[in-house]
Simulated assay, not measured.
Amino acid sequence: MYLREHDLVKKVLSLGLPEHDFVIAGSGPLLAHDLRWEVGDIDVVARGAAWERALTLGEPEDAPFGDGVRRVLLFDDRVEILNGWFPDIWTVDELIDGAEVIDGLRFAALDNVRVWKTLLGRSKDHLDVKLINEYLESVAH
């Protein structure tokens, strides 16, 4: 399936966020690399004009991780826009500027995804790390 036709990606695109001011994180990069097609939600890390736009779309609240990280939940909590992502490890600028552009959208680099999924350590994260490792190994050869 064409990436921009995925229901959650379409929801993100419908928000009109400036493309250079956000990156799709969470499991979204696995979706972009066709490692997983089923994802329950999509996380968007935003800065500048994209974060300002998010603030017009919903009420910000504290995110469950990271001091000072705020989030706006949209589409029955299936799209989460955050102003930070593991802030002890990366700045928002590092995540966005270091993103991979796939189908015209910025996705967090798989190396970064592997780091946060390892830190989270949930059962689904273990599987995702395995998928990422296999993918990165296959493209390295």
Rank of each mutant, 00 (worst) to 15 (best):
T56L: 11
D34L: 14
V92G: 02
S14W: 01
E137C: 04
R122G: 07
L8S: 04
A54C: 07
G40C: 06
A25W: 07
L82W: 09
N133L: 14
A25H: 06
W90I: 10
N112Q: 09
L119P: 02
I89V: 15
N83I: 09
R114L: 07
L95S: 01
L127T: 15
G58V: 05
E137N: 12
I132W: 01
G58M: 07
V129D: 13
W37I: 04
D77T: 12
H126P: 05
D125K: 06
L31Y: 13
A50S: 06
L131D: 02
S123Q: 09
N83L: 07
W85N: 03
L17G: 07
G48A: 05
N112Y: 13
L55G: 01
G104T: 01
E61N: 05
I96T: 07
D97K: 08
D41W: 10
V9T: 14
R53F: 04
E38N: 15
R36I: 07
G84K: 01
L110R: 06
G26K: 01
G98I: 11
D62S: 13
A99M: 03
D103S: 15
V44S: 04
D125S: 05
F75C: 06
D67S: 12
G26A: 13
K11G: 00
A49K: 14
F65P: 02
D34R: 15
F65Y: 15
F22Q: 00
T91K: 06
G121H: 09
F22Y: 14
G16K: 08
N112E: 00
V92S: 08
V69E: 00
F75E: 11
W85Q: 04
T56A: 03
L105F: 14
V45N: 01
V113F: 07
H20D: 06
E38S: 11
G16Y: 07
P18E: 06
D128H: 12
L74N: 08
E80S: 10
N83A: 05
T91P: 10
P29G: 08
L55F: 07
L95N: 00
G16P: 10
T56P: 01
G40N: 15
L8C: 07
A49V: 09
R122W: 15
A63T: 02
D128L: 12
L110A: 05
D21P: 10
R78T: 14
V9R: 11
V101H: 03
E59V: 15
G121Q: 03
L17F: 14
V115R: 06
T91R: 05
R36N: 03
P29D: 00
V92I: 14
D67N: 09
L95G: 04
A54I: 12
E61F: 12
K124Y: 06
E52D: 08
E94V: 09
P18Y: 02
G16E: 02
K11E: 00
V113P: 00
E80D: 13
I132G: 04
E137S: 13
P87Y: 03
